[in-house]
Design a protein around this nucleic acid. Structure first.
Lengths: 143, 143
DNA sequence: TTTTATGCAAAACATTTGCAAACCG
DNA sequence: CGGTTTGCAAATGTTTTGCATAAAA
């Protein structure tokens, strides 16, 4: 895989714009995460992908970077089961469908903000909505 | 605190109806959880309350019971942060507002099912919606 | 050079497991 | 009794921390 000079430059600029120093690891992980296709990855998945891509990075750093990326909205944290966090490379509004049997997470093209929710919240002026997450938990009807 | 005979009987019957043997621990924990007021409790909170109420029960059992209770719908698992699960003693439909700063979870009287969601799912016939969870993540505007 | 990030190893947690003893029906 | 459930201790898995080294500005 070839790393184009301009792609790196773009990502560096992107990270800077988000207030993050474009370190070697952050740039490499960002490229890895943002390359086409929406995916749901655990921290360990990202570490594995990084290793595969021969990106020199420690597990601790993966955790740091994923938290930072989630903070600035580069990825979205998805909580569907206690004990492990998933990170969604799709940041545009959508709903998650979680299969309790297989553990699979699927995206559903539906904007949670279009649900008339935030308006109904009656929130104080200084309160800011950071995210609205919708998870539809499904399983299979027995017989 | 006095334990009325009939209250115990009610709970036992309730548990049986849900397919759970009314063991000493399950009955005691159920009574503790279902006594008035909607709350969001961690497994550890429940253990602490049990100790306070002098209910003889082990941590392992709390975990078992909470999972079972969630399975049969006696409580609802709430996932708002990775690494720890909360259990909501309110089972009627509502939305959660999670304060990222204080960690507080609040209920919002709004039925997620009234959002036109399940109908839009286009799910296969054998797929069953077990739960729809909505979490509005908020924090405070700076300055 | 000054600040910030990385990475290692060790902690810290929440949750689960294996298995013997106790309990429920 | 016979299948479940409990509870202990140990294990597991994920995420965090402390701190020295390295990289960024």
């Amino acid at each position: 895989m070839e790393t184009s000079r301009s792609e790196s430059a773009d990502i560096k600029q992107h990270l800077r714009a988000l207030g993050l120093r474009p370190t070697r690891q952050r740039v490499a992980i960002a490229r890895l995460l943002l390359r086409g296709g929406h995916r749901h990855l655990s921290a360990d998945d990202v570490l594995a992908e990084a290793r595969r891509a021969e990106i020199p990075v420690a597990q601790t750093t993966i955790y740091n970077i994923l938290r930072q990326f989630a903070d600035v909205g580069l990825v979205r944290e998805v909580l569907v089961e206690s004990g492990r966090a998933w990170f969604d490379t799709r940041t545009s509004p959508h709903v998650h469908v979680y299969d309790e049997v297989t553990g699979a997470i699927q995206d559903l093209d539906h904007d949670p903000h279009a649900l008339g929710l935030p308006e109904n919240l009656n929130l104080p002026a200084d309160v800011e909505v950071k995210d609205v997450s919708v998870v539809v938990r499904v399983s299979y009807k027995s017989k």
